[in-house]
Write a protein that binds this DNA or RNA. Structure first.
Lengths: 212, 212, 212, 212
DNA sequence: AATGAATGAGGGTTCATTCAT
DNA sequence: CATGAATGAACCCTCATTCAT
């Protein structure tokens, strides 16, 4: 049992409903990261949370609902980090772009365990419309914001580029680099992946992201 | 039963050992594409192939082996298309790069059903080392070839760019665009995705991929 | 929540121990009538009573005890109506017989919901000796009283009949008619069922139950 | 394990599909008779049949379907005996009535175990429309035939009676007597129950069923 | 080589019961 | 007294695998 699970064992019978749900969601994430989505069972999640079998159906109606809320949790957690970076990075569009790109490869977010969770859900998204919707919504939101930032930069620098294409390409590249980090962690570190994405930005917006 | 399954039935009598295995692998791919990996059972695959329950364990030792060989089949099929495009695209490095990029978004390859299969396997790759190895090997191979092509172009055009970074970025972007096509097919077509990747190439190698 | 349940909630604060038990028993009866015995769970009963989950095990030792007391309640309630009818029907044996027969098809008693409860318990009686005993005792008691009444009538009318047989037959017919009302309520009303039983009495004791 | 179950153990892997279904249905009946419907689980039925857990869902889609087919089996078995008696009892309506009444109390049919099965299903019929329909259909059929026979007898004997009422009463009495035999087997035997029903027939059709 | 009935371990889920509050 | 979150045994059902044919 992981350290987190052990800590969870120090439990009271009166944890707030939301706290207990979060506890179970986190146990689910750990299980997917460790064993994969297809191996993750109710029993494993419950044990990982240090709780009993029946508790999941007490707080979520079914395994499916648990997984949906888990996906939502992961998406929201990421989104929070994203907007936080966006807001705390000054007013320059270039700096903002740099900041949110950085989020993708942040040590706290870009861990193989977490990447495994993303790909686990993406892998199931074709056959589970709910997953697809949640992920699609997220993608659209990011694309919209990124296209806005790229648009500002293009206007400033009078670049011959399409804001949408630049934004879509950036997002796609970041997610594609996640795949690299998942599959070939030996060949590439998060830092190198970030460097690749920055090389992209430098390539299309050379005036705004000068080589260091 | 699909048309493909019906056709499979006809040839079942005289199928050689290898042909039977391929028949089952193709049925597996169809099932993953249609229902998802987690829903794909031995019974569904057998039915999709127009054959009986027990036959899979006769030709493959287990479900796991079937899935591994299926992944290998998908990877190989893709690789063949890749090299074919590479070879039939003349001697110019730029043309070759264009050709292999085109493969990613080729009508015959870039279909949601097939993308679903890729993501299904990637989604399980963290917890199944065998999947990971097969996919990782494929990635390394492509990266190596792409880096070579990018190196040639950089030398030709005297671009201020890193060949590895350009190649890694291209590959990552293409795979990231696949995710877009999987999640938000309404927002983006394969053609647009290809345009995004070409915009990338134009951005970093403007002399070799002029705007049309 | 039903109206009854809402009303129950209001009085819950000041309910005495026995009143609370009765409240739960009535909720049990409503649940069996509505959903059936096999679907009736502690949670449903508690909710129907407008009370909390754990309360049943506080007042009854187990679900089994609750069901036993519920059966006893139903039996007693019926018995009360029976003797009340018996006593308030004058001194003539024929009138008494008419009165208790009428109880079986009384609007207040002969409702499908209530019949469902009787048959639910009878259906389980084979495998639960306690149920069987309670029901058997009831049957014996009624048979004894009915046989006495039939005996009086036979003596009065000098009928060529066996008092026991007439009584057993009457009781059996009434309970068999309940089955009809349970299974084919469209084909037969309580009034018609009563007419059938009266036809029986007229048939065997023509002088005492003349055709109207 | 019962004798029947032991015999079932001498099994082949190629019993016909229908034979295996019947085997499971008979095991279900034994289980309901022994333990009651509410205690009857898939595991118990499978064990009683000398087969494995999963087999029930192989031949029936669900427990519910198994129970439905079991009820139908019981109903059909009874109906067969009923019509056989009807046909082999000569042409006289009175004899036919006697014969089918006899079926109710036949040693081979009127066993507590079998009665328990009937009442088990009746007890659930309120909450399971399918059960109710099957039982109701059966009741209607019998009532119709019995009313026809009673009509003939009434015409022959010029009795002052209603054919429907006589028939409904007879059927109800027989089923009510089953309840007696289920609840108070000590107080009454099948023979006595039959005598009660004959007393009824004699009472209403004295010319056709003379006292012996 | 091929079939498909049979197996049984293990999945998700329910629910009577317990217990800290 | 009363609550309701928590438990865990036992339910029904699925499905990879086996095996007699």
């Amino acid at each position: 049992m992981s350290q987190a699970a052990t800590k969870a064992k120090v439990k009271s019978r009166t944890a707030s409903k939301q706290a207990r749900k979060t506890q179970l969601i986190k146990a689910t994430i750990r299980s997917i990261a460790k064993h994969g989505l297809s191996v993750t069972t109710m029993a494993i999640v419950a044990k990982e949370a240090g709780l009993s079998q029946g508790i999941i159906n007490l707080h979520f109606q079914s395994k499916e609902k648990l997984l949906e809320e888990t996906l939502r949790f992961v998406v929201d957690e990421y989104r929070n980090a994203w907007y936080k970076a966006l807001e705390s990075s000054g007013s320059s569009a270039a700096n903002k772009l740099l900041a949110v790109t950085g989020v993708y490869f942040d040590k706290r977010i870009c861990q193989r365990n977490k990447l495994a969770v993303w790909f686990a859900f993406w892998g199931e998204s074709r056959s589970r419309p709910t997953y697809r919707k949640i992920c699609a919504e997220r993608d659209r939101e990011y694309k919209h914001v990124l296209a806005g930032l790229c648009g500002e930069i293009i206007a400033e620098g009078k670049y011959d580029a399409c804001a949408d294409f630049a934004a879509f390409g950036l997002l796609a590249m970041c997610e594609g680099l996640w795949l690299d980090l998942l599959l070939t962690p030996v060949d590439m570190t998060a830092g190198q992946a970030e460097a690749v994405s920055l090389a992209y930005l430098r390539g299309i917006f050379p005036g705004h992201f000068p080589a260091n």
